[in-house]
């Protein structure tokens, strides 16, 4: 497993400053600023429409912001790159709805995500090395799908698909993982397992988790950012933000 280059020179692995994005006049993101340190695990919560998914779209290059800075490792301007570039630089993304390649097997899905050259010719003549083979096996064990090696992804349960997608993220060896609602549609047991898995991953990577489930966020035991109407409402430990009066009003709805 490659360890994140948490080199002392890098102050923030991901840095958003004054980012604004509007769709047809509606400001999905409004002057949003966010600073993620290398190796940090961060949970982002917020009611529906708070701009969480748009924020992920902006970081991963799917959406270009109207204004503001989006920087990766202090000096890479992410707004100048597209999805494939950003993925190759080391930002991996898990979608809200589990998105695996349904007609490929678990093994093939991981092989596809395996870190390596993504160029057309390299892919055409690609031969798997022994170390890479072992790496896939290792990840399959980590996500608990070793027994499902040759099962088609479409035959997996919802929770297994979520894990497979997380596995695909890890094997991509990104420096930052953006994880959108990993516990969505999971049983309580699966939710806790996923929290454990993410904490394990965060030992070697920076991880940003967007989540609704408060038990899950509590299990992550990390710094929490509350988004509301496209900007940051509060930041701090879960206990601290959940006692914040504004947060209680907009989010907890009391």
């Amino acid at each position: 497993m490659t360890v994140t280059n948490a080199s002392p020179e890098i102050k923030s692995i991901l840095y958003l400053n004054g980012v604004t994005k509007s769709f047809d006049g509606f400001k999905a993101i409004n002057n949003l600023s966010l600073d993620i340190a290398p190796g940090e695990l961060r949970a982002i919560i917020g009611p529906n429409g708070a701009g969480k998914s748009t924020m992920m779209d902006i970081i991963t290059g799917k959406t270009k912001p109207d204004k503001g800075e989006v920087r990766f490792k202090d000096n890479i301007d992410l707004t100048r790159h597209d999805e494939a570039d950003i993925a190759n630089m080391g930002i991996g993304r898990k979608f809200q709805k589990p998105t695996v390649i349904e007609s490929l097997s678990v093994w093939e899905n991981l092989d596809l995500a395996l870190a390596g050259n993504r160029n057309v010719w390299q892919t055409l003549f690609f031969k798997l090395k022994k170390a890479q083979h072992e790496r896939i096996d290792e990840i399959m064990t980590l996500i608990g799908l070793s027994e499902k090696r040759d099962a088609l992804a479409k035959n997996l349960s919802h929770g297994q698909k979520q894990w497979l997608e997380i596995g695909m993220l890890i094997i991509q060896e990104p420096e930052v993982l953006l994880v959108d609602e990993p516990a969505g549609g999971m049983t309580d047991y699966e939710t806790m397992e996923t929290a454990r898995l993410l904490k394990e991953i965060s030992e070697h990577h920076s991880v940003i988790v967007v989540e609704h489930d408060m038990d899950f966020v509590r299990a992550l035991d990390c710094r929490v950012t509350v988004l509301h109407e496209g900007s940051v409402l509060a930041e701090g430990s879960l206990d601290k933000v959940s006692s914040n009066q504004q947060v209680i009003e907009v989010y907890l709805g009391r």
Partner: peptide
């Protein structure tokens, strides 16, 4: 096949 089945997934995998 991944482009056929889930194009954006392929992009976010870096292809």
């Amino acid at each position: 096949v991944s482009i056929r089945d889930a194009e954006s997934r392929a992009r976010f995998l870096g292809y």
